[in-house]
């Protein structure tokens, strides 16, 4: 018996409902559809993109027609939950005029920064710090707190993490407002490594130095790249913003690509500037940020206010009801502390 077949058995006693069992739900859906259609001017084809409508709606309503119709409305407002916006994927993504000055400055300042020129066989060494929201349950209670870690990662130029190394130090956990730190979290504090970085994080070689060196250096092309396979809605903008973040973590972009990335990011719809921000190491800065499609948190990319060097990222709660945490709670942060080159892997 392997883990896949065990998983197939898990909760397998839940039956597939027969069509007849869903008749009431179908009736409610069709009633809601009828109502939605009747309220729409003209045919559905002539209808404007629903994303243009803005309403604030609460969650957590009971089941039934009202909840179904209302929450579906909220879904449309807060962003397209469909990962591919249908025909949107075939329409080209033309970069609009860049609008976020902070990111333009970050792009311009890239020229003045010292650049690394990795040679074959070398490792890129990333030193970073992170804060992550952790939630556990034990002895009948739920714990929510922040874990903090410093890590140093060695990655080969092809980005193959199975040939990478890691040295990490778990720092003292931090409480989030109104919550306590569980005693077991304190036991995890300490160092480990260096050891092999056997885990892959899903990005594979995609963010290795060799791969990112082939990314476009033209901002408009970089913009298109960020939107590859995405639609034309708030969800797509959010995903594109996430891709920018993916290229700012344990990734080293050559100067030309980095400048193009910041220029392209400045044109992503929905990006604004946050005057006061800080990274996971507590370094203060200014941030380019975007609110998630649910409207619960703001994702910030933090820059040094003088040099416009990228410092790190931070997620902050902006809506207590949706995030189920107080406004201002930091639910995650990173700090990119140093990038360097090494000829050899650390001894393990």
């Amino acid at each position: 018996m392997n883990e896949m077949s065990e998983l197939e058995r898990l909760r397998a006693e839940i039956p597939r409902p027969a069509a007849a069992d869903l008749r009431a739900e179908e009736g409610r859906l069709m009633a809601a559809i009828g109502a939605a259609d009747a309220s729409a001017p003209g045919t559905s084809r002539a209808r404007p993109r629903p994303r243009a409508r803005r309403r604030t709606l609460g969650f957590g309503l009971g089941a039934g027609l009202a909840a179904g119709a209302l929450v579906a409305g909220a879904v449309v407002v807060t962003g397209d939950p469909s990962p591919h916006g249908g025909s949107g994927t075939t329409t080209p993504h033309l970069m609009p005029v860049a609008s976020v000055q902070l990111l333009n400055r970050a792009a311009d300042s890239v020229r003045g920064q010292k650049e690394l020129h990795p040679k074959p066989g070398q490792f890129l060494v990333y030193e970073s710090q992170s804060t992550n929201l952790s939630e556990d349950n034990d002895a009948g209670r739920h714990w929510a707190y922040l874990t903090r870690e410093k890590r140093k990662v060695w990655l080969p130029l092809d980005g193959d993490s199975t040939r990478g190394f890691i040295e990490a130090e778990r720092l003292a956990p931090k409480a989030i407002p109104g919550e306590a730190i569980p005693p077991h979290a304190l036991k995890e504090v300490g160092r480990r490594g260096p050891e092999k970085l056997a885990d892959t994080d899903g990005t594979g070689g995609r963010t290795g130095y060799q791969a990112v060196s082939r990314l476009p250096t033209d901002p408009a092309k970089m913009y298109e790249h960020l939107y590859t396979g995405l639609g034309h809605d708030a969800r797509a903008d959010w995903d594109a913003w996430g891709r920018v973040g993916e290229l700012l973590g344990e990734v080293y972009l050559p100067a030309a690509q980095r400048a193009a990335l910041f220029k392209a990011a400045s044109a992503i719809h929905g990006v604004t500037t946050t005057g006061k921000a800080a990274d996971a190491a507590g370094r203060k800065g200014v941030a380019a940020s975007m609110v998630d499609p649910i409207g619960a948190e703001r994702e910030e990319y933090v820059f040094d206010p003088k040099t416009y060097d990228f410092l790190g990222t931070r997620s902050v709660v902006i809506n207590a009801g949706k995030a189920k945490m107080p406004v201002g709670t930091v639910t995650g942060a990173t700090a990119q502390l140093r990038v360097s080159l090494a000829d050899q892997a650390p001894p393990v």
Binding site: P50, A67, A72
Partner: peptide
């Protein structure tokens, strides 16, 4: 309920 309502609203973009 939300899934099918959202799908219905997005059907133009399918």
């Amino acid at each position: 309920a939300e899934t099918f309502m959202a799908a219905f609203r997005q059907r133009d973009r399918y």
